[in-house]
Design a protein around this nucleic acid. Structure first.
Length: 257
DNA sequence: ATGGTTGAAGATCAA
């Protein structure tokens, strides 16, 4: 099965792109982030026509996550336990057959030195607690989404340009490492040769896309039971080059079964 | 240092 994570940067604006993407790549599961709105009133029937069930967790104006799936998914929860930002729609978790999958939109945290950055780290700590409890279920689990964290220096076009950014502060990286070290596999990193550069986000500004100035912030974390079945992972970079594209490209991973 | 762009709003804010 193929699982995709896609920060679509506005469901209203991107729905036609999303449906084209579903028709072309036909993934089994799609985790969406940054719906940037309530879903009521949008022509989401197009998603169903493309053959998908949908669990939406929208929010007026900002954030918003969803899980689309060819097989029906059962909602497990929205928000993380003890969520430090309960009014913001950043987490949805569901069960599809034996698989547990979550769509995550982690706080951006900019600018550093503010409450926003502190909340980002707090949110990551609550996610870490929840991730640990998920591992105890000893099931295939995939935590997919926009983590807003550049894990290592090799995951950005320029360490210098990003040095003051919340996405690559030592605290952000340490919080992500604390989760990974519980026993999760970063599917994209695992699928890459060590020296290979691969980005998932290119800013709309400063000609980032034509100059390939990107970074890797969309990740799949796989439980051992999911990692055992991992067959490959990559980025559907073509989608970033389309008209009216999101600033993120979809990332994919393939699992046996 | 600043500015550049986009979406959801319907003035700015978030990214």
């Amino acid at each position: 099965m193929q699982i995709v994570s896609f920060n679509i940067n506005g469901l209203r604006a991107r729905l036609p792109r999303l449906v084209e993407y579903l028709d072309k790549e036909k993934p089994d599961v799609v985790c969406l982030q940054e719906l940037k709105g309530e879903v009521d009133g949008l022509p989401t029937g197009d998603v169903e026509k493309a053959g998908y069930h949908a669990l939406w967790h929208g929010q007026k104006g900002f954030n918003g996550v969803a899980i689309l799936s060819k097989d029906e998914a059962k909602l497990r929860r929205t928000g993380v336990p003890g969520d430090p930002l309960p009014e913001q729609s950043r987490y949805i978790e569901a069960e599809i057959g034996d698989l547990i999958v979550a769509s995550i939109y982690l706080p951006n945290g900019n600018p550093i030195g503010t409450e926003k950055f502190d909340k980002k780290i707090e949110w990551m700590e609550r996610l870490a607690d929840h991730a640990e409890s998920l591992l105890k279920e000893e099931r295939p689990v995939v935590l997919a989404g926009d983590y807003n964290v550049i894990p290592e220096d090799r995951d950005t076009y320029s360490v210098k340009a990003m040095a003051a950014d919340a996405l690559m502060q030592p605290e952000s990286r340490a919080a992500l490492r604390r989760i990974v070290h519980q026993g999760w596999t970063d599917a994209l990193r695992a699928a890459l040769p060590d020296e290979e550069k691969l980005w998932t986000f290119w800013d709309y500004q400063r000609g980032a896309w034509p100059q390939n100035h990107g970074f890797r912030i969309d990740h799949f974390l796989c439980s051992p039971q999911a990692a055992d079945r991992l067959q490959g992972a990559g980025v559907h970079k073509w989608a970033r080059g389309e008209e009216k594209a999101s600033d993120h490209a979809p990332v994919w991973m393939r699992m046996e079964g």
